[in-house]
């Protein structure tokens, strides 16, 4: 089988790349694009660690053959992070001690970003449901759930301040 050329918009920049058949999105992100903030976990869609946004929806990048998403908009943790400082979700994770070894953190943050874009005022149950596909083996989840709820407050009050 032959390599093919795939076009993607990654974190706002158009990219064309030559990919081997069956290459997954995480292969491309980590290896050819150098975007190593996305972590490779179980490589079978069970842990959620590799979650990125594809056209605004969460996707496990280890399970996605990159040839099947030609033309898609991909956002990773690097794209979420503003040029200066941190995104409110990152800030909430930092302030709330919602990370220990940090391996699940970028996946958790991307899931939170998708949730809060759709539902700016989620209940605790909404957050639990949103992260139910993401495994953390250190924190016991409590701090992560609290941080996502805190991020929702931060984003709402920033939006409120902007409107006023």
């Amino acid at each position: 089988m032959k390599h093919s050329v795939v076009s993607l918009t990654i974190n706002g920049a158009e990219r064309q790349m030559l990919v081997a058949p069956g290459s997954t999105l995480i292969d491309v992100l980590r290896e050819s694009q150098g975007l190593t903030g996305t972590r490779r976990g179980c490589e079978q869609g069970a842990c959620g660690t590799c979650t990125v946004l594809v056209d605004g929806k969460t996707a496990m990048s280890c399970m996605l053959p990159v040839e099947t998403i030609e033309g898609a908009h991909v956002e990773t943790i690097e794209g979420l992070t503003p040029p200066q400082g941190l995104h409110p979700i990152q800030e909430a994770f930092l302030q709330g001690f919602a990370t220990q070894c940090g391996f699940c953190t970028s996946g958790m943050i991307m899931v939170a970003a998708a949730l809060l874009a759709k539902n700016p005022n989620p209940s605790r149950e909404d957050v639990v449901r949103a992260i139910s596909g993401n495994i953390c083996r250190c924190t016991g989840y409590e701090a992560i759930i609290d941080a996502i709820l805190d991020a929702a407050v931060r984003i709402r009050s920033a939006a409120h301040a902007e409107a006023a």
Partner: peptide, 15 residues
């Protein structure tokens, strides 16, 4: 290990 059962975010207790 991906199917080895451990509690998820919905199974945690108030602490």
């Amino acid at each position: 290990f991906s199917e080895y059962l451990m509690p998820g975010p919905g199974d945690i207790a108030e602490m």
